[in-house]
Design a protein around this nucleic acid. Structure first.
Lengths: 177, 177
DNA sequence: GAGCCCATGTAAGATGTTACATGATTTA
DNA sequence: TAAATCATGTAACATCTTACATGGGCTC
């Protein structure tokens, strides 16, 4: 079994609580999506693979006449997930178009380049608003789920402040020149 | 012409200074790689596309008997790059396996979960060391190239401190429970 | 009964990495 | 002379998104 990128996200969510594929997608979009996205085209095939190798078990659970299949994690699945959890790997892949623009911004007039920086700040603000919108106000998440949510909030706040500081620094620098 | 993900990275680097495909790859790996990676399999085909539509112009520039093709940006290419630079889009895509592990860490014993957090800190330390290694000590980068480099350093330092703070907070929280 | 949400699924296409093939030049 | 670097390129594979097809149930 060669795990794919969605393997652990799907398996982990099923482990938290039995779910349908549709549920997995919905929860992904409301929780890990900003650092680990997954689409239907990945999720449904992955569920079949996971069931084939016996890491999850599916059962028909129709709601009325509506087809529905609920998956729960197996003992083998739990062991596999636990082994993955303990891996020390921390690889990060990032695609940040705003940073790419800033990298090439030296060809622009200073004011226009600084505008890019203000847009970056707005990007962080937008993400912060999005994350805050996910909070249902109940505040009952387990500590590490909450930790990761907090990471998102803290990262955005740091980013906003970073843009402010750099804008001030660059204004001084560019006006002096 | 439908721009791909590498279009602007390649065009921007050619705009800074005429380059071969090999140069583009080398410079990408030493500058924008941590937020905008590109492989040979993307770069060489992209250079042909860009030449076909007239945004860059290639010329044979062999070194000894070694084949080599140098590309420079055209007027149309400059205009296209400038138009892209002014786009307000700030989309970010992130794949952070360490955050995914932390998200599922509530199933583990507390000490093991906190170990994940310390590994995350080591990940930031490693990236910080990598970024510092890129600095040639000359310090002659233009302001916005330097800004983006600084973003990398600052982000890593923030991340290290964030892990430290959260580890302390969680130790208190989990020991109290 | 129109429109939205629940629910499963896939085809097509875009995207991206890895590994290799080829061959010249430089360095140890 | 062996190994590293310069240099171009692609085939195969892996990954991921988008858009659509299908159909039932719920709400206005």
């Amino acid at each position: 079994m060669k795990p794919t990128a969605v393997t652990w996200a799907v398996l982990g969510l099923i482990a938290l609580e039995p779910k349908s594929g549709y549920d997995v997608k919905r929860i992904v979009d409301r929780s890990v999506r900003h650092f680990w996205a997954a689409s239907y085209g990945q999720i449904y095939p992955e569920l079949r693979r996971l069931e084939e190798i016996g890491w999850i078990e599916g059962a028909e659970a129709p709601r009325g006449g509506r087809v529905r299949r609920i998956y729960r994690i197996s003992g083998a699945g739990k062991r596999a997930l636990d082994a993955w959890l303990r891996a020390p790997d921390t690889r990060v892949e990032l695609r940040d178009e705003s940073l790419l623009r800033l990298f090439f911004a030296d060809t622009m007039p200073h004011e226009d380049a600084l505008t890019l920086l203000s847009w970056r700040r707005e990007g962080y603000r937008g993400m912060l608003a999005y994350l805050r919108g996910l909070d249902d106000g109940q505040g009952k998440d387990p500590p590490f789920v909450d930790l990761v949510y907090q990471w998102g909030l803290d990262y955005c706040e740091w980013g906003i402040e970073w843009c402010n500081r750099q804008e001030q620094r660059l204004r001084r620098l560019l006006e002096a020149a």
